[in-house]
Amino acid sequence: MGPAPAAWAAGGAGAAAAATAARELAGDGVRTVVLVEGGSDRVALETLAARYGRDLGAEGVVVVPLGGATNIGRFLDVCGPAGLGLPVAGLYDIGEERHFRRHLERVGLGSGLTREGLGRLGFHVCVADLEDELIRALGAEGVREVIESQGETRPFRTFLGQPAQRERPVEHQLRRFLGTHSGRKALYARALAARLDLERVPRPLERLLAHV
């Protein structure tokens, strides 16, 4: 998705902005729009797709970060049945399920949607979030090895020395560390997805890629 659709859906106002967004997206040769909450979700999906030998862009599959789950409605208005009528799919955190359910129903893509119903539409849930899924799939030791490979062993040890972290389970420590500064989530989304055994890909990511 280019700048006009993204800017409009994230908060741009007016019919003219919506029309510009629609024209740009329609001209991109897009056949499916995958809506995800943030940039790290996009990085993980594109990294895994490449490992499966796929080029999502060449296939006409565009992965769009929403900039927050509450923006899902505006993106569906651009891409969904009342807009361009493009097939949509997505990935969401369990705590944001209500936003996805409500707006998918509002645009006519279902009614009384259950979690299973969302999955049939192509919208798949992360148990907590993307980082949680990747950490559980790779294991704590595997994640530590990735941190070491990124040259961040020392910052991680410093982080573990913080009083708030000392009594937490290691998985919680790792998940918190991955989000401690701007850019780290995307960095580790790519690194962890590149390290995964393809037989242990988290189910929501595997199912979403299979759907599109």
Score class of each variant (00 low, 15 high):
A186Y: 04
E46I: 01
A89N: 13
G122E: 12
R42G: 07
G122L: 14
V33W: 04
A16S: 03
G68I: 13
G68E: 10
T32E: 14
P87F: 09
G85I: 04
V170D: 09
L178D: 01
G183M: 02
D28I: 00
E133W: 06
A16E: 09
L86Q: 05
T70M: 08
E37T: 14
R23G: 03
V201I: 14
N71S: 12
E59A: 09
A9V: 06
G27M: 02
V63K: 10
V125D: 08
G73F: 06
G27E: 04
R190E: 13
H172Y: 06
Y52K: 01
V61Q: 09
Q162H: 10
A44F: 11
E46R: 12
W8E: 04
V43T: 15
V33P: 06
A140F: 05
L160V: 02
V30N: 02
C79L: 10
G12I: 13
R184T: 00
V61C: 09
L134F: 01
T114I: 03
A89K: 15
E131T: 02
G83I: 12
A18H: 07
L48V: 07
A128P: 00
A164R: 11
S40G: 04
V62K: 04
A58F: 04
R54P: 07
A194R: 14
T158R: 12
R98A: 13
L130H: 08
V107A: 02
R203Q: 15
E59L: 06
L174K: 05
F159V: 00
G95R: 15
A193L: 04
T32V: 12
V143C: 10
A193S: 15
V33A: 15
E152G: 00
T70A: 13
A9L: 06
A18E: 09
A194I: 01
L174H: 03
G39H: 14
A137F: 10
P163F: 01
H124V: 15
L178V: 08
R157E: 15
A193E: 08
R51I: 12
A137D: 13
A18D: 03
F156V: 06
K185H: 06
E167C: 02
G142C: 05
R195M: 01
H124K: 14
A26L: 11
P155A: 03
A44D: 13
T158K: 08
R115L: 14
A13I: 12
R166F: 03
R175Q: 09
V201Q: 09
E206D: 15
T20E: 14
L138G: 04
G2S: 04
L56R: 10
E96I: 03
A10S: 14
R42I: 05
L121K: 11
E148K: 08
L209G: 14
E141G: 07
Y92L: 15
